[in-house]
Design a protein around this nucleic acid. Structure first.
Lengths: 189, 189, 189, 189
DNA sequence: GATGAATGAGAGTTCATTCAT
DNA sequence: TATGAATGAACTCTCATTCAT
């Protein structure tokens, strides 16, 4: 299961994401994935033990990528306003710049039948610890960290669904949202 | 495709929801659904034209149920604080009381391959209009209605994922959340 | 199994013929036939014991119709030339005027799996006897009656396949064919 | 859909022909065909895209075989009497020596629902050209080539239906038929 | 006489997976 | 490492047929 050709592994990963998004988990067959990746079906089994583990592996990689991106985006920041701006903007930027990847993660994580043994996303845990740390430092109001998390990351998701044509309007919504969350979660200056 | 036996239709609907939640959309086969509903596979096709339209029909029914429930919960309310409380509490109550149904809707709506022609949920539109009306009446702060919507309904979803054992903790989180949103979206009293 | 509504029986018969011609025997399902006839599937079983016997019954009716038509067309004729003209012309006329019915018979009779117990077409036997009688009367050359039969009825079939647009050309072919067969089967005048 | 094992392809072809003859097109299921060929159902789909194209492909192969056989049988002949003898005898011999194959072609070609896009039989066209050539050389009487074709090939078909027990009687009929057609289509010597 | 509802059986097709090459 | 060929199991869906109304 160790591989020579990392480019082939990458092609398979992209194929999985694209096919899942286009056809749903039901329609994402090894045959379609292999065709899209330009390899034979048997080759897929050189890089992955079976279909389930393939999906899980790729999901975890994608989720890690998302949270690591956000952790990086806040590195060194100490001001609450900047932190929230960095998180929401970063989340939004990731969403738009890696649309497929992001949607794949969303779709996967909302399916209990798939997620039920995928709590192992390291950088998600790291992000939770960061939030906790910032709260310990009294950067946020003294709310439960879960609620802080929800307030920061859930509302912005809706912008992913928007018509990507109206870029300007999306930007307006985004900055308004940042302002709302800042006011809600931070102490007045 | 016309029916007499509404109880059979109901059994099929429940079976669909349960099987989808247990096995995901990929694993939800007609055979499993029929077995769970206690009818023959062929009978499923008396009540639904095909699998895709079956899933869509049931999804729309469930989504309508959710939003109608919330519309009812706010009927007659005129105070911003009460409205937000009713919406968030109602959402939470619906989530816990109709857990399967709710999770089915969530899972379905995060799958683009399925949703792509399901924008036809009437009472979702009605809810948006209500939000707009309240905002026209200056009950909410003058934010975009989309952001209002996101703030109210997205954070509370996270509570659905919580361990349902700690009822008390969930309640704490809920009331804190209501308070946060009220402060964020309403004018100070 | 005796019926009131002969018009319904007729509608079913026509539906069978049309559906078989359009979809082949493989695609001719009771459901399609019933829909085309404007009755319920169950009603078909009031008029026919089962699918196989339905097809056989209708086939025999159609075949009888064809041969009876030809027997009538030669009634009273005593001259060889006229007889052959009447048979070939009659066959051709039947073919074009009852195209569906004729093609149904052709298709059915070339399928051994269906015909294997349908040798019971009375007027086909009568036609063979007529040919035998005419030969006994030395109207035809002293060939085997089977060959006489083949010569008269098989070549003309090909005209059924022709482009029905070129009516004139078909007519030309027909009259030439009649002439050929007359010369081949009759004594020179 | 590319193959290595031509013997397997051949086994499938034979299975198709046999099952179609025994059960008709309606009864010829992939499952029966696969069982008869000694392969799994899925294997059939390695050699053929789907059932319809499988039947069509095999039909065309068989029809080509028939007409090529007859073209070969007349190669080098220049005398009208010999040509007609070769064609009718050849047709009859092919019919008896490749009975299954022949009946399969007959049954298939009389089913409009199947044939509707199978006019692509190359050697059938070649045979028509040959007939035309012979007629241009004044070997046949100046009849339409379609009628010549009908006269030569249609009557002999009937012998395929005869009880194959009476070999002697069949031979009698055959030679008589050849004589009839020769007289009809050729100039008197 | 007529039908809507129901179903077991089976249709064609695709699945995830294996293995010899 | 990579793959074409192979397959048992499972898929969605339709079949011919029955029966209570």
């Amino acid at each position: 299961m160790r591989h020579k050709d990392d480019e082939k592994a990458q092609r398979i990963k992209e194929a999985v994401i694209e096919v899942v998004l286009e056809e749903g988990f039901g329609g994402a067959s090894i045959s379609k994935i292999a065709k899209r990746a330009g390899v034979s079906q048997a080759t897929v089994y050189i890089y992955h033990e079976n279909k389930e583990s393939m999906l899980r592996t790729i999901y975890i990689e994608c989720a890690e990528e998302l949270w690591e991106y956000l952790i990086l985006a806040t590195q060194g920041l100490r001001d609450g306003g900047h932190i929230i701006e960095a998180l929401i903007c970063g989340y939004y930027r990731f969403m738009t710049e890696h649309q497929k990847l992001f949607r794949f993660v969303e779709q996967f994580s909302s399916c209990p039948a798939l997620t039920h043994n995928c709590s192992e996303i390291a950088s998600y845990g790291k992000m939770m610890s960061l939030l906790q740390k910032w709260q310990d430092e009294a950067i946020f109001k003294p709310y439960h960290v879960n609620n802080i998390f929800s307030m920061i990351f859930n509302p912005v998701k809706m912008l992913a669904a928007e018509d990507p044509a109206c870029q300007t309007e999306s930007d307006d919504l985004l900055w308004e949202l940042i302002h709302i969350i800042q006011t809600a979660v931070l102490f007045a200056p």
